[in-house]
Design a protein around this nucleic acid. Structure first.
Lengths: 140, 140
DNA sequence: CGAAAAGTTGACGTTTGCGTAAGGTTGACG
DNA sequence: CGTCAACCTTACGCAAACGTCAACTTTTCG
């Protein structure tokens, strides 16, 4: 429907409307995920009857969403950030707000990394002791 | 009950039975947590009527539990490991099993660390760009 | 003795981010 | 024209680890 049927694949560059299936393949997510994001107002695809059509804008947003997730933001955080993004085109207060949240997140992530590093070190330590034990038993 | 009342605090070294409250303070957990762990058969405190009395053994187990959590093991994993620990005193197969799980966990943790590092780097990148934007606006 | 503090057992609630049917419609292809 | 794949909505499930009442009993302290 997006265009001639067999032209769908090639039309991706031309046409900026994608079906849910195409989106899933492109971004490596499930349909459920996209519908869920829509329900949470993270994306707002068009419709052809009941069928969703994802615009270029949806794709841009989805990219940001997936990035945000990598950074450990919750979907709710991401929604708010996306809203800020939309609201005005780069007003200082909004950039600052985003920045603040990003810095917070960064701090949290670095703290988490520190903990993780410590835990890794401790676990390695434990393993070393286990190895020692095994070696002793072997020696008998 | 554990001993004379005002002697409770000092008796910690002598007496190896602790109330749930003492445990909580010692380990920084809530009563709910300890009852939950008991329900999950991670610890098995004695009773005085209905009241729990945590033994030295309970404390040793709790320590291991909290360690295990730091390492990212699930409570179920931890329960199994504790059972192994109890079963025999250091039979080779059991040590090996523990080792295997630990190595798995270690790999997972290091993978997670790598991801986290990448995410941190990316987020810093984003921040740098935001800074650039802000600087430009400032310049106007 | 009498009240406050501490402990007890249920049992339902919370959180996040989807997974997973169930059952129905639509559109494209041979 | 039939059918099959892709899509739709609705709604319950889940998973871990406790939190949070509610309603009692038991200690402990003044």
């Amino acid at each position: 429907m997006v265009r001639g049927t067999m032209a769908q694949t090639e039309s991706l560059a031309t046409d900026d409307l994608m079906t849910i299936g195409q989106m899933c393949e492109t971004f490596g997510v499930t349909p459920r995920t996209l519908r869920f994001y829509e329900a949470k107002e993270l994306v707002a695809p068009l419709r052809t009857g009941t069928r969703r059509l994802f615009t270029r804008r949806c794709r841009a947003r989805l990219k940001l969403i997936l990035q945000g997730k990598r950074f450990g933001f919750s979907l709710e955080d991401i929604r708010q950030l996306l809203d800020l993004y939309d609201l005005g085109d780069s007003q200082a207060t909004q950039i600052m707000r985003t920045r603040a949240l990003a810095l917070e997140r960064l701090a949290a992530m670095e703290a988490q990394r520190a903990e993780l590093d410590a835990a890794i070190a401790d676990l390695k330590d434990q393993l070393a002791r286990t190895d020692t034990l095994l070696a002793q038993r072997e020696a008998e």
